[in-house]
Simulated scan of single mutants.
Amino acid sequence: MSDRLTVGGQAVIEGVMMRGPGVTATAVRTPEGKIEVEKKEVNSISDRFPILKKPMLRGTVALVESLVIGIRSLSYSAKMAGEEDEQLSDKEMAGTIIFALVLASILFIAIPTGAAKLFHFITEDPVFLNLMEGFLRLIIFLLYIWGISRMKDIRRVFQYHGAEHKTIHCYEAGMPLTVENVQGFSRLHPRCGTNFLLIVMLVSIFVFAFLGWPDLVSRIASRILLLPVVAGISYEIIRLAGRSKNAIIQTAIMPGLWLQYLTTRPPEDEMVEVAIESLKAVLPEEEIVEGTGNYLAQVTEENGSEENSVAAAAPLAE
């Protein structure tokens, strides 16, 4: 898998976004039943500043860029699916990102660290209180995932999430990208963003455990300032998990895979078709090298467009 491309993805409204080297493609099923694909070039800030590709730095860059690209893709999908009249402007997108970050900070930082004070009746030990804060954060995260997974509209997005994972699995396995082949793969993926978020929650427990127990404002500020460190560590762990077949590492990521039973759903064939179109749009146009035994999709004619095969893999599937 070392010679393959970097491909990740994300479920959007009635569609799937796939990201390859320097390009993203968002495929959406319109109300008329047609699949529309928007392809965009992506220039990472790490290309201009190579130091940002170093371990512990690239995780934060990947997280921020994924957030921006994800919101832009969601805006496009909402428009194509008929839920919005127009896409978000840059100003509106910036406001959406800021709102999301503030909301996440309140839900996963301010509330847990504030509530951890309730454990003072047991002990005043700062390490214990920080650990309790971490466990409260993890419980809030799991309850949040469970809660949204029960929403009808979100369940449909989670079906597209499953389609995205299955398609990437098929891609990595070197199988032709057909609906039948894709449906044969698991909807769980070790490099899923759900895995990443769970790892962030777990890593934060240990990183924040030894920060002492100052006043509430100082605790919240310290957590926010150390988020890049937590994201950097978590990103390196998930990259390692995606490449390594070590039994210990694979066992360690099992909770993240189990959590995907909530964040993914078995997709319909029509959803898989959308995911395939999205992935095809980010693949380079090159001929199959016969006899390598490691190719992806055979060249076919479908809907008047050519589907080319490449060998590829994604260090982060979502």
Rank of each mutant, 00 (worst) to 15 (best):
V207E: 01
F208E: 00
F208C: 05
F210R: 01
L211A: 04
W213K: 10
W213N: 12
D215Y: 08
D215T: 08
D215G: 13
L216R: 10
V217R: 14
S218H: 12
I220F: 07
I220L: 12
A221H: 05
S222N: 10
S222C: 00
R223P: 11
I224P: 06
P228N: 07
P228R: 10
A231H: 00
I233G: 04
I233N: 02
Y235P: 04
I237A: 03
A241H: 04
G242D: 01
R243G: 07
S244R: 10
N246A: 13
A247Y: 06
A247H: 04
A247L: 13
I249T: 14
I249N: 08
Q250K: 13
T251I: 14
T251D: 06
A252G: 05
M254E: 13
P255Y: 07
L257W: 00
W258Q: 04
Q260H: 07
T264N: 03
R265V: 00
E268D: 13
D269F: 10
D269H: 10
M271K: 11
V272N: 09
S278C: 01
L279W: 04
L279P: 01
P284W: 09
E285F: 09
E285G: 12
E286M: 14
E287S: 09
I288T: 08
T292F: 04
G293A: 01
L296Y: 12
L296S: 15
L296P: 07
E301Q: 11
N303Q: 12
G304I: 00
G304W: 00
E306G: 00
E307C: 04
